[in-house]
Design a protein around this nucleic acid. Sequence first.
DNA 1: GTTAAAATAGCACAGGCGTGTTAGCATGTG
DNA 2: CACATGCTAACACGCCTGTGCTATTTTAAC
Lengths: 228, 228
Amino acid sequence: MEVPRLVDHDRRRAELGEAAIRVILREGLAGVTVRGVAAEAGWSTGSLRHYFRNQHELQAYVVQATTDTLRRRVLPRVQRPRTASSVVEGIATIVEEMLPLDAERREEYALWSAVVAWERQHPPEGGSVTWNDQRAVYRQCVAALRAYEPVREPSQATLPHPDAQVELWAALLHTFVDGLAAQIMNTPGEVSADTAAQLLRSLLQAVPPARPDQGAHRPRAESATRAH
Amino acid sequence: MEVPRLVDHDRRRAELGEAAIRVILREGLAGVTVRGVAAEAGWSTGSLRHYFRNQHELQAYVVQATTDTLRRRVLPRVQRPRTASSVVEGIATIVEEMLPLDAERREEYALWSAVVAWERQHPPEGGSVTWNDQRAVYRQCVAALRAYEPVREPSQATLPHPDAQVELWAALLHTFVDGLAAQIMNTPGEVSADTAAQLLRSLLQAVPPARPDQGAHRPRAESATRAH
DNA sequence: GTTAAAATAGCACAGGCGTGTTAGCATGTG
DNA sequence: CACATGCTAACACGCCTGTGCTATTTTAAC
């Protein structure tokens, strides 16, 4: 049996995923055509179709590859150890890693938004990809709130901040972050990065856990990276 | 000079706008093609092109017509006079008119979302349409907070709730509403209408103006419909 | 070198799109 | 009735799309 050259299919597919991401940023996921992506990657359509039988397979892979790329880019930033000058500032700096406050994060949000819009009009049978990311954002909100929770005396350890309360605040923070990101993206120039950052801090001031906020706080290290 | 039959152009355009809305709900604004909309309306492409010279004119009109339709549908509901059992409930019922909590409002949000996505990738030179709607939502939040503000004694009229504070809370509420709507739409079945309604009330409880919330409150009638 | 399989490149077809153009229909006025 | 003009329908062209198919090139094993 003769074995001709073997090409690392996964490597080629990943290489094509990067080209697809450029296409998505330019034209959206609907612009991911067989011919277009092949041209962007410098391939011929015949070559591309050796790795993806049809457009549907291509788009399904691109959706998965895009979300994987986003996870690899965002998660390390969010979980990076940090020291903050206050509780509000600590939570804010964590959450801001997920907001489109600069070109890099705008690009990430545009990609994520494209995938969300795609899945809304093409409900996948094999389980949604974006719902997992939504849960991940929620868990990061929980982690942020827990990490920068004011250190409590052992006597009142469970009373003021039971887990149910933290999870409720995390859900509120998660929803607020979603809205803030959407406003920054949808009205460029109208809602600036500065006003967004101030709004975020205003919300954190209003939500109970940050109320007694004076002086520096350090994150509880063991829970800063535990969540996933 | 001979004048043949005269057709009410505006009426025909409006008739076509309704067909276009059906197309948008099915395929998004990118699916608004000359041929497709003509077929949906039961016209020939030649007829349609008597009212719109090219696709760009058609899409520009459809964007405007869609937002106008949305304003006509949503605004009366939001500004409808209502009596609530509490401050939180009063604000919540107003804000909920803008949330995709049932089929009708889901349709409205899908239309609005399609226009937003369209304008993000096709920045209009003649000023954004969706930004005006965003401002309108914000003003409705201000109006809701003012209308259901607990009635105060004249002596402390200006101290606890200066306008700057109300506007800040309105901005927070507006952002939260944006996020809540996005979550309901993007994760159907995962974030239900009930949990969304509860989340909204939790936020209103946490935000200062609703803190002293016990007993029934009536809206301050003169400010319930003033805002626009 | 020979060979067989993998990889690549490209053509061909059908279908949808925007749009320019043209022919036919309908109708208020003379 | 005749007619000029607004409306309607349809065709034609070029471009882009997915996809089936084939020819060519490359490469590892014999």
